[in-house]
Simulated scan of single mutants.
Amino acid sequence: MSNESDPKPRGERPVALVTGAAKRIGASIARTLHAAGYDLALHCRRSLEEAHALAAELERQRAGSARVLQAELTDTAALARLVAEAVAGFGRLDALVNNASTYYATPFAQATAQQWDDLLGANARAPFFLCQAAAPHLRARRGAVVNIADIYAERPLPGYPLYSISKAAVVMLTKALAVELGPEVRVNAIAPGNMLWSTNAVKAETEATVRERTALARQGSPQDVADAVLFLLRDARYSSGVVLPTDGGRLLHI
């Protein structure tokens, strides 16, 4: 698709930086924002091949609309550079979606300080310092942040205490930064339920347990998260500090 057919020329379109954008939920978020008219800085850590394939797909739809940026989010020094590269590539930054997340079991008796640093670093410290780096640019555009929390920030997932703690930190980060960055910047979060199949038996993994533990009696999808992200970025103009459960009613039965 050429620029002549775009609703807005490059430079006038809103720009979003999406972390962990190469695949799964992050890729769904990227495609949904792109379809809504956003240009995208697509962050990845290791999934360069997938990120470049996604960028190429989006570029075919609208030239000059996607760039791939690679960074290790646990390296705090890399975060300001990531934001600077996004702004340099597009000339503006209107939205930050902190989607990237680290997830693995840490049974309490075996949990280590290294695991604490890894999970809290990736899931809570990185979003905080990305917001710090992005804040001047977001303020200039009266932009918005969406963080991806989890329903297990509210009710811990057995065997995953550090992950649950890290996502609880994301919830408070969202509320604290809504105060710190307002009134120019809105900061909200999504608390997804089970969107992708996994091997964790505690979560709703079979059709039977989905029906039993979820009010809507069905599995969610990455698109459900992506739709919620777009809503919070574009449409929820009088919402800040909100954590939106996107779980099909799972919290009612967890």
Rank of each mutant, 00 (worst) to 15 (best):
Gln223Lys: 12
Leu42Val: 05
Leu230Phe: 13
Val87Tyr: 02
Leu79Asp: 07
Arg218Asn: 08
Arg45Ala: 13
His34Met: 08
Ala168Thr: 09
Ser240Val: 02
Ala208Ile: 11
Leu17His: 00
Ala208Ser: 10
Ala16Pro: 07
Arg237Gln: 15
Ala84Asp: 11
Leu252Val: 00
Arg186Phe: 10
Leu96Tyr: 04
Lys8Asp: 10
Lys8Ala: 13
Met1Gln: 09
Arg10Met: 13
Leu162Ser: 08
Glu207Val: 10
Gly182Pro: 05
Arg10Thr: 13
Ser101Ala: 15
Thr106Asp: 08
Ala95Gln: 12
Asn98Lys: 03
Asp75Ala: 13
Ala71Trp: 02
Trp197Phe: 09
Leu54Ser: 00
Ala77Trp: 12
Ala126Thr: 06
Gln219His: 14
Pro9Gly: 00
Leu157Gln: 07
Arg67Thr: 15
Ser166Tyr: 04
Trp116Lys: 06
Ser166Cys: 03
Glu57Ile: 02
Leu196Met: 14
Phe90Ala: 04
Asp150Trp: 05
Ile151Gln: 05
Glu59Asp: 15
Pro222Glu: 06
Leu17Pro: 04
Thr74Trp: 00
Ala71Tyr: 05
Leu42His: 00
Phe108Asn: 09
Ala189Asp: 09
Arg250Glu: 15
Pro107Cys: 07
Ile165Ser: 14
Ala236Asp: 11
Asn200Gly: 06
Asn99Ser: 08
Val210Gln: 14
Ala36Leu: 07
Leu162Gln: 13
Val170Ser: 07
Asp94Glu: 11
Arg142Gln: 15
Asp117His: 15
His137Pro: 02
Val87Thr: 02
Arg10Phe: 14
Gly159Lys: 05
Glu12Arg: 12
Glu85Ser: 14
Tyr104Ser: 03
Ala226Val: 10
Arg13Pro: 04
Glu50Thr: 03
Phe108Glu: 15
Ala63Leu: 10
Val242Tyr: 04
Ala133Trp: 01
Lys167Glu: 09
Val179Ile: 13
Leu96Asp: 07
Leu177His: 00
Gln219Glu: 14
Ile29Thr: 03
Ser239Thr: 13
Asp224Ile: 11
Glu85Asn: 11
Asp227Trp: 03
Ala135Ser: 06
Val225Tyr: 06
Thr199Arg: 11
Ile190Glu: 01
Ser198Gly: 13
Leu181Phe: 11
Glu207Lys: 09
Asp118Val: 06
Ala80Cys: 00
Ala77Arg: 15
Ala191Phe: 04
Arg218Asp: 07
Ala215Arg: 02
Lys167Ser: 10
Arg45Cys: 12
Leu58Met: 03
Phe90Ser: 01
Asp235Val: 10
Ala21Leu: 09
Pro156Met: 08
Cys131Thr: 01
Thr19Gln: 05
Thr246Met: 13
Leu177Cys: 01
Ile151Val: 15
Tyr163Leu: 06
Ala56Ile: 04
Glu57Gln: 11
Pro156Asn: 05
Lys175His: 12
Ala111Thr: 09
Thr199Gly: 14
Thr199Glu: 15
Glu85Ala: 15
Leu173Cys: 05
Ala36Val: 01
Val179His: 07
Ala36Glu: 14
Trp197Ala: 15
Ala149Lys: 03
Arg213Asp: 01
Ser164Asn: 11
Leu79His: 06
Ala176Leu: 10
Arg125Thr: 13
Glu207Tyr: 07
Arg13Asp: 10
Trp197Gln: 13
Arg31Ala: 08
Ala226Thr: 07
Ile151Asn: 01
Gly20Lys: 05
Ala178Pro: 02
Ala149Met: 00
Ser166Thr: 06
Leu54Glu: 01
Leu120Cys: 15
Ala30Lys: 00
Phe128Tyr: 15
Glu50Pro: 01
Ala95Cys: 12
Ser101Trp: 08
Ala22Trp: 01
Asn123Ala: 04
